[in-house]
Design a protein around this nucleic acid. Structure first.
Length: 421
RNA sequence: GUGGACGUAGCUCAGUCGGUAGAGCACCGGAUUGUGGUUCCGGUUGUCGUGGGUUCAAUCCCCAUCGUUCACCCCA
């Protein structure tokens, strides 16, 4: 049996690499404009980091982590998300927050043990930003509009933004209590999932897709009325700033994220082109995470988006222009001319020109066929006749023309043709 | 973790109501041996996902397993 990749992982082949590069370089350039700096953290961490950071009752921690013991009996976990590691790094390296703030971005693989599905993998890639140290609602608005700016620049169409506030440790229990009171009597009519959510995460009940459940939800009290003063003000400000920036969004009281560390603002950018897993990007504020992990009281807000999902949309709905350097195919006629061509190819490469040669063929016809399959732009043909005259034929595939040139000048001639003015 | 669909050449798929398989594309070779892309001619595609069962006989039926895929839970 041949060995294949494991479930939920995938090889990213050269044919797709243009999408990945496009996303990575665009993200870097946008992050730079907003003055965020890259940080790279380890792919595995102490399991406790995620257990404490994300919350033991979350789905990610309770059933989706790749956790293992190393040879020193340490419990380690392949990171399921990026924020906990960033919080850890910020606490561990005080120089990151010497101006009482850190604006960081990261990209790389994440790991969750889930059933694979459209747009969902066990190893997947996220690119995210974290704005740490700023409590002002401008920050929330900046982060959200940064996300939108990035997706605009990437050329991803048909996105919509949803935002919500999940409150803080002061008012969230109040919200949950009100919800439980409202729903409590009808609990026996609700589905199994809702009953489970009632204890674990009551806010999530609102998002149930079961039609019978939904009939019991009419007339629900407005969640936002239960927010404390501080949270309400903050939320209203974020909404106002987004409006003033011209960012289109919907307020979605049902938007609850699955990680315990979120406070106040949560948001999601979804695409109707992704199938059931329609979230391209998710994020929010986490004012208590850094302190909870043992650091100073530090407000923060951030988001992450799934690179595979972005690639999915780009592949289907957007034209990416593949920009490649023209390829020069070097074709000696007969094995006697190979060595000279081999050296010429070395010179071309030293001059920064992309070239290729097939060492196993000596007849011109098959070499031209190969050059054509490689989509070469030029072919250098060098046979006995050329060798005698110290010349070489330069064939232009696009123009379907060819000329003979002194072999000593060919590097210079090609450099002038290919190098952009 | 739960449920449905699927698993045949490199790719897309057809097929056998049980007698070990095909079509297109791709690939390889050729059309007077120093000129590709179009055309024409010819050729190879494969332990029919894996293991077991039923049967004289299975790729086709049954079971298991692995994988893919879609949905739920949840999430990027």
């Amino acid at each position: 049996m041949i060995i294949t990749n494991t479930r939920g992982t995938q090889d990213i082949l050269p044919a797709d690499m243009m999408y990945w590069h496009h996303i990575e370089t665009t993200a870097r350039s946008i992050f730079n404009i907003y003055h965020y700096q890259e940080i790279r953290t380890p792919i595995f961490e102490q399991s406790e980091l995620f257990e404490r950071g994300l919350g033991n009752d979350t789905d990610i921690v309770s059933k989706e982590m790749y956790t293992f013991l190393d040879k020193g009996n340490r419990s380690l976990t392949l990171r399921p998300e990026g924020t906990a590691s960033i919080a850890r790094a910020v606490i561990q390296h005080p120089q990151l927050t010497k101006h009482n703030q850190a604006k960081l971005y990261y990209c790389g693989p994440m790991f969750r043990y889930e059933r694979p599905q459209a747009g969902r993998f066990r190893q997947f890639h996220q690119i995210g930003v974290e704005n740490i140290g700023n409590a002002h609602p401008f920050t929330d608005a900046e982060v959200i509009s940064l996300g939108l700016h990035l997706f605009d620049e990437l050329g991803i169409p048909g996105l919509s933004v949803s935002i919500n506030s999940v409150g803080c440790p002061v008012c969230r229990p109040v919200i949950q209590e009100r919800l439980k009171q409202f729903i409590g009597n009808t609990l026996k009519h609700l589905c199994g999932d809702c009953n489970r959510r009632f204890d674990q995460n009551p806010l999530r009940i609102l998002d149930c897709k079961n039609d019978t459940c939904r009939t019991y939800f009419t007339g629900l009290p407005d969640i936002h009325k239960s927010l404390c003063h501080d949270c309400k003000d903050h939320f209203n400000s974020v909404v106002e700033y987004l409006d003033s920036l011209g960012v289109p969004f919907d307020i979605d009281p049902k938007l609850v994220r699955g990680l315990d560390y979120y406070t106040k603002t949560t948001f999601e950018i979804v695409s109707d082109k992704l199938g059931a897993q329609n979230a391209l990007c998710g994020g929010g504020r986490y004012d208590n995470l850094v302190r909870k992990m043992g650091g100073k009281d530090t407000p923060a807000v951030g988001f992450a988006f799934g690179v595979e999902r972005a690639v999915m949309i780009l592949k289907e709905f957007s034209e990416i222009v593949k920009r490649e350097d023209p390829l020069i195919f070097v074709a000696p006629i007969g094995f006697n001319q190979q060595t000279r061509c081999f050296h010429l190819m070395n010179e071309l490469r030293r001059a920064g020109l992309k070239c290729e040669m097939d060492y196993s063929k000596e007849d011109l016809k098959s070499q031209l066929k190969i050059a054509d399959k490689m989509e070469a732009s030029y072919c250098l043909i060098f046979g006995e006749e050329e060798a005698e005259r110290n010349e070489i034929i330069l064939k232009d595939f696009k123009k379907r023309s060819q000329d003979s040139h002194p072999i000593d000048h060919i590097v210079e001639i090609l450099t002038q043709k290919i190098t952009p003015q």
